[in-house]
Design a protein around this nucleic acid. Structure first.
Lengths: 196, 196
DNA sequence: CCAAAACTGGCACTCAGTGGCACTTTTAGG
DNA sequence: CCTAAAAGTGCCACTGAGTGCCAGTTTTGG
């Protein structure tokens, strides 16, 4: 029987908070759940809660930091394709598989997010992080100059736009369509434009 | 001397709150300003404040409802062009002129928004409204069917993506570039895609 | 084994936002 | 005009989010 290390205990506390929050949010709704209740369930003080999460909203996106990190790493790794969209295609494939594997959990999370405006706002914040990451990558690929800069940003903006639209569509269809396929079609559009 | 009517008084109170908030936000920052202070400046009770604005954040976007309404009307009006982007081009022209005319005010507002995460989140909420409006319009143009539906949504997502990226660029350049021109270039990209 | 560092709990505090109620002003109908 | 209903306002008490502070405990590395 190994003694619990500090970091493993931290992970356990975090996990307990997330689990308690999920239960409560699901049963009572987001606003109707107080942080006190979550803390009581997790056996932790309110003060400690705020050392694990910035605020109540953060509980609804427990993988935010980790996923962004992974996205950044993948963007870095896919740095060699001549066309930046090809890099996105590969990344899309990776995330599509992960999301499909966690379908139920994601659907539940999304139902929650859609029902609480404050959470929808946080979700956009996340998108913004991803957009910034893509813009930085594209900029590196497109080189210097104001035109290249603008192009990189427009492309990142359009990319996150079609990605988010795709996710919403997938969620709305209860995660039944093939997400990887939807993603590839979205990226096709991004490449080829919307001229009729 | 005309007796002040009820609605004119309401408008005056609203205006006073917005003005007081702008002053305070500018001098002390958003979080450092309490609603109490704003109410005191405007000569109104705290309880009354919440009858004019949903929350403190709403003070930073005083034209939100009005602008969305106008956008919706323009979308409706531009319903006859064969290519939906043409409709956007006309609308872009209209808003570009308005924004350029209110450059200073918009720049100040944006500096505030960029410095407060909560406000950035609200801004995304606004974008979401605009995206939904565009998606509905495009859907009408593209007809029935899942493919048309998806196309409409992807296009709306990409559109708001390039528009927001354009606005950010313009803000960052202190509103000096020709916004109408930037907008048209962004819409060119939307039409023609990002294939290298 | 020990000192430093990290973690925790508890308390007091500020401020956003809500509900309720009494009071005043505006409006519309006769 | 006059008046009753409706709309708007102020005040008060309350809940709950989030922060600063400090004292006590646990973990870690040497």
């Amino acid at each position: 029987m190994t003694r619990p290390t500090r970091s493993s205990k931290k992970a356990a506390v975090r996990q307990a908070l997330v689990a308690a929050a999920n239960r409560r949010f699901h049963r009572q709704g987001f606003e109707q759940t107080t942080i006190d209740e979550i803390c009581a369930d997790a056996g932790v003080s309110r003060r400690t809660f705020f050392r694990y999460f910035e605020n109540k909203e953060a509980l609804a996106f427990p993988h935010r930091a980790e996923r962004l990190e992974r996205f950044l790493a993948l963007l870095d790794g896919a740095g060699h394709s001549p066309n930046p969209v090809d890099g996105l295609r590969a990344i899309c494939e990776t995330f599509a598989h992960e999301y499909s594997a966690n379908r139920e959990q994601l659907l539940a999370q999304q139902r929650l997010v859609d029902s609480v405006p404050a959470l929808a706002a946080r979700e956009h914040e996340i998108d913004r992080d991803w957009e910034a990451a893509m813009a930085a990558t594209f900029r590196r690929r497109f080189g210097r100059g104001a035109a290249a800069e603008r192009r990189a940003r427009l492309m990142a903006g359009a990319a996150i736009g079609v990605i988010r639209a795709t996710m919403r569509y997938w969620y709305e269809k209860d995660g039944k369509p093939d997400l990887a396929r939807l993603g590839q079609e979205a990226l096709d559009r991004l490449e080829q434009g919307f001229l009729c």
